[in-house]
C-alpha cells in the first residue's frame, strides 16, 4: 500500500457520491483520475487490503435481525467447531478471541426466528452452550480509521 492507496482509504470510508459518474467525482476530490481510482480500488479489494468497496447495509433497518454470539470452545476442538459454525451462511463474521469465551461470531438473518434456529442448530451440532447477545442499544458514530 503506497501513499495514494492510503489517501484513498482515508478519504473514502464514507460519503461516496450518488451521481452518474461517482468514481470521477470522488477521484477529483482526492486528486486522481477516474480510471486510476477504479483500478486502485480493484487492486485493494483483490489484495485483501480492503474487504470490499460499496454500501454498508444495515441488516436491522432492512427488516432483518442480527446478534453477537459467543462460545467457550475447548482448545482441542477449536478448528472443528469453527468449521461447524462457519458452515452456516447466516454467520457473517467469526473471530477467535483471547478469553474463556474464545469464539465470537455475528449471525445475521431475515428474522429473529431464523437467528434462534441457527443458534439452536450450532448448539446441537457442537454440543456447546451458545451465548446470545443481541444489541440492546447502539452508540454509532461511524468508522474513522486512519490508514
Amino acid at each position: 500500500m503506497d501513499a495514494v492507496d492510503r489517501r484513498i482509504v482515508d478519504a473514502l470510508q464514507g460519503g461516496f457520491p450518488i451521481c452518474p459518474r461517482p468514481y470521477a467525482a470522488a477521484a477529483q476530490r482526492i486528486g486522481l483520475s477516474e480510471d486510476e481510482l477504479i483500478a486502485r480500488l480493484a487492486a485493494l479489494s483483490a489484495g485483501g487490503t480492503i474487504s470490499r468497496f460499496g454500501p454498508l447495509w444495515d441488516v436491522e433497518r432492512l427488516g432483518g435481525a442480527v446478534t453477537l454470539a459467543a462460545i467457550a470452545v475447548p482448545a482441542e476442538r477449536f478448528d472443528d467447531v469453527a468449521a461447524l459454525v462457519n458452515a452456516h451462511p447466516e454467520v457473517a463474521h467469526n473471530y477467535a478471541r483471547e478469553h474463556a469465551l474464545n469464539m465470537w461470531f455475528v449471525v445475521s438473518a431475515e428474522s429473529r426466528a431464523e437467528i434462534d434456529r441457527v443458534l439452536a442448530a450450532i448448539a446441537a451440532e457442537t454440543g456447546l452452550e451458545v451465548l446470545d447477545m443481541p444489541k440492546s442499544e447502539e452508540y454509532f458514530l461511524g468508522l474513522r480509521l486512519a490508514a
Binding site: V9, I18, T49, S51, P55, L56, R61, L143
Partner: peptide, 12 residues
C-alpha cells in the same frame, strides 16, 4: 432511512 450506513471502503 439508515438502511445504507455509508458507501465507501470497508477496511480490513
Amino acid at each position: 432511512s439508515g438502511a445504507i450506513r455509508r458507501i465507501g471502503v470497508i477496511p480490513n
